[in-house]
């Protein structure tokens, strides 16, 4: 398969993730859609790595994987803290940041 096909799949997944971030209201699902966007970027990186025939893009994909894991950890920590404080788990209800 040509590299362009992989890039097309990557673009479609990225846009589904972007639409999910814009339309959903549960912060858990918004985090999941952010994961979708990061994974689409990973697929593009690995496709370009295959196109050039060197492994730099794959190393970059591993770094993106690490950043995604950190983002999930902090995001889920914030969701748990919101739940403990009886704040509604809904991004439209959250208007202030102070503890």
């Amino acid at each position: 398969m040509n590299i362009g096909w992989y890039l097309t799949v990557s673009v479609i997944v990225f846009c589904i993730g972007a639409g999910g971030v814009l339309t959903r209201r549960n912060p858990l699902v918004i985090l999941l859609c952010l994961e979708l966007m990061l994974n689409a970027a990973n697929l593009a990186l690995i496709a370009f790595s295959r196109m050039w025939g060197n492994g730099d893009g794959q190393v970059f994909a591993i770094i993106v994987l690490v950043v995604a894991a950190c983002e999930v950890t902090i995001g889920l920590g914030v969701v748990v803290a919101m739940y403990r404080r009886r704040v509604p788990i809904d991004v439209d209800e959250l208007r202030e940041l102070h503890g």
Binding site: L7, V11, M51, W52
Partner: peptide
């Protein structure tokens, strides 16, 4: 955004995009 990105990626004129890679 999808249409724009597809135009940007597939119309970029990179020769490698239409190949199976290195």
């Amino acid at each position: 955004l999808a249409v724009e990105l597809l135009i940007a990626v597939l119309g970029s004129g990179l020769k490698g995009i239409d190949s199976k890679g290195a």
